[in-house]
Each structure stands twice: as structure tokens, then as C-alpha cells.
Amino acid sequence: MSNEDRISNWQLIKNGIFKENTIFRLVISLCPSIAVTNSVKNGFLLGVAVLFVQTMVNTTVAIFRKFIHPKIRIPIFMLIISGWVTVVDMVMAAYARAAYKEIGLYIQIIVAFASILARAEMFASKNRVCNAFFDGLGSGLGFLLALVLISFFRELLGRGSLWGFHIVQAKPMLIFILPAGGFLAVGLLMAFFNWIDMRFYGGKGAGGASGH
């Protein structure tokens, strides 16, 4: 653990956003990245919800990490995750009704996001509270960024608008707001980032160890 202590919090955040970006690097939790990203607003809102849940779950798990029995750690992580998701769900239903109507269904599905359990198991259960908090913040921000980026392209191409405001007058490319276009957008963006990584940083693409 002493080894981990030396990593600065800023590095943890950067790590979550770039090197271990949930969607473009680790390639997990792809379901929400396709289901909710047909408008920037929805992508952003779900990203914020995930950011909150991820940070709180990481912190909670780190607080209890010495107390949790290793044999039942996964069920306990799940309980913690679903507890925080329910909190977000109820708060949004009460105070952010317009947003809740759009993405309410997906808020409840956050429980099953692989990325949240992965961070809790991989990092938070082995590290100090402060580090776990910043790790959750970083990976949540990375997820938020990826969702906003994907939805930016999809809404711009598919509706000709951004955050609901009309920008382009040309006939939009409908396929990008349909699920099929979601796969296309994620794939093309991933290919683009891999290309940048390989071309300019000498990386090996998604899954490969790229040190930047």
C-alpha cells in the first residue's frame, strides 16, 4: 500500500480520464454509451449521475475496506452501489423532473454498470479513502467525458443540434440517433483515439499499455 501512497491525487484523476478511460480504453460499460447518448443533454446528465455514484461508492468501499470480509465482498459492493443509485434515483425524481423523465430508466441501470464495480474491486478496496475518492472522481470524469463526446457527435450528425439548440440546417443523418449509429459512433471514436495514440504516442491501441 505504501507504493500506492506516492501516486498524487492529480495523477489518479488523469489516469481515470485518459489512461484508463472506462469506454475508450477499458471498453466496459458500453451499454449506456449507446443507449443514452443520442443527445448531449442526456449523455451529460447520465455522466453526472455516474460520476456521483462512482465517487460515493469508491469512498464508502474504502472506508469499510478493512471491515468487509473478503468472502462476501462482491455482494457487499453491490449493496453499496445499489444504495447510492437509489439515492440518486429518488433525488432526481423529486428535484430534477424533466431530466428524470428522459433518463430515469437508465439511472436505475447504473447498478449493473461494470465500470463501477470494477473500480470498487480493483482500486477502492485496496486503497486509502482519500485516494479512492480521487480515483472515483477521475474514472467518473472519464466516463462523463466519453459520454459527452459520443453524444456530441451523435446529436450534431443525427439531429443537427447541440443541447437541443438547432445549429445545422442540412438534413440530419438519422442513423446516428438510432442504436445502430451509436455503435458506429463509439467504434469510429475509439478507432480515432487508437490512431492518435499509435501515431503520436507510440501506443498499442485499446488494451495495450500506453504510457502517456
Binding site: K171, M173, L174, I175, L178
Partner: peptide
């Protein structure tokens, strides 16, 4: 297929 779905 792409153009059919895009501009039905």
C-alpha cells in the same frame, strides 16, 4: 443500408 436508415 446506411443511406436507407439515414434518409428513409
Amino acid at each position: 443500408a446506411f443511406v436507407l436508415i439515414t434518409w428513409p
